[in-house]
Write a protein that binds this DNA or RNA. Structure first.
Lengths: 220, 220
DNA sequence: TTAATATTTTAGCTTTGTCTAAAATTATTT
DNA sequence: AAATAATTTTAGACAAAGCTAAAATATTAA
């Protein structure tokens, strides 16, 4: 596996994330994501095409090649392991880890990352509930859905919240809803769209439509 | 505290280490240390002078300003804390940590480093026995001397070995001489320059001239 | 104290990654 | 289907950090 510059890595990672939703990524989308200019994107795309990391025909958008995907998964593995380390060991709060991991992820020493993985006990998800690729780049693809879309009686793990205000965190803490907790939906009420959910075997309790809309879960 | 590029940081760090021995650092010395060319050094010196990180008159060599020293100590703090982490937590061996820390040291997030320091229990020396500057840049200046120069009956901590061959490591392991161990010299023999040393209160034992020449110690 | 040698600096070129402005292409409307 | 609008690419510049070769300065030696 070759070595790529920080800039190249940031482009590869951004394309990987953007092409999840859409089929092919456009120049403007990527420029917007990376807070750069379309002309810079085109320059880099030419470079990454030569390195065989992506498929790209002028004016037709681009997507990662299988080699490009492998590289992206390596970067994401590093990013998420560092996020886990920062939250779990250094006691960074949930919303701080991403920014710091953005820098750490570019230190690409395979032995370092594999030993870090081992030290952390081979975690399978990062502090936001996103899956961590293993040393071979394998990743558990479990789609993140909104709690409002979870069918009845289907256990799912809480994997994140979209709003990160202190107000919502206060409420989540009170209701003992934290990342990784296993939830299932028992009832929904059409009147106000509130729902009753249950954590494990504990008694069910009610959460509002507003809260449910901000909670994301993953089914294994 | 401003932010500096990886390249600038490498120059600052190298000057810091070189000016320990000598008073003023020369272009050739620095080029040699950084495996670069004298012309590149001159370019960077002009840049660092403008940033007030060093004192420099053309053809007269250079030394760090007090601001430059502060920056250097920050880099060294990061480097040595990561070295400690790699050795202590990730179980990297002694001679592997330096190279990996060379990359990690450039991630300059103050909160990250201070939390790492706390997580590690505020270690005072790195795995080579070199002191770690604290969050304010204070460093315990204890000179590293060769075991052959240590006066009789003066306890000192083993802080490193110059040779790192497997042969010497085997011998050190056998004699239970590891980094941090407190030693004192009891006797020297002029015939072969061998010496008798003692670890703590244990019985004294003999080490050869060749071995003593490769062991460095620090007096508190 | 000149002359020869070594060191340091300058000048000019290269690469990487960015930018702006203009040209080319694609998409949308009328 | 042509005209307008939006997107994308090209062309040309710039800053950072490096290099080589030549010029300038210091040092050493005769």
């Amino acid at each position: 596996m070759l070595n790529y510059s920080t800039s190249e890595e940031n482009y590869i990672k951004a394309i990987y994330h953007l092409q999840r939703q859409d089929e092919t990524v456009t120049t403007n989308e990527l420029a917007n994501e990376l807070k750069t200019k379309p002309a810079s994107v085109t320059d880099m795309m030419k470079k990454l095409k030569i390195k065989k990391l992506l498929h790209y025909q002028p004016y037709q958008g681009f997507r990662l090649s299988s080699e490009g995907c492998k590289v992206a998964l390596g970067i994401i593995r590093r990013h998420r392991l560092w996020e886990y380390f920062l939250a779990e060991k250094l006691k960074f709060s949930w919303d701080e880890v991403h920014e710091v991991a953005e820098d750490l992820e570019h230190v690409s020493n395979k032995k370092l990352i594999d030993k870090l993985d081992e030290f952390l006990g081979f975690p399978r998800v990062d502090p936001h509930g996103d899956p961590i690729p293993d040393a071979n780049g394998k990743i558990e693809i479990s789609k993140k859905i909104c709690l409002t879309e979870l069918p009845f009686n289907t256990p799912a793990n809480v994997s994140g919240v979209s709003d990160q205000s202190s107000e919502i965190l206060e409420l989540l803490e009170h209701k003992k809803i934290t990342i990784g907790v296993k939830l299932e939906v028992k009832k929904k009420f059409d009147f106000d769209n509130s729902m009753e959910v249950r954590i494990g075997r504990q008694p069910a309790f009610t959460i509002s439509k507003q809260l449910a809309e901000n909670i994301f879960v993953q089914t294994p």
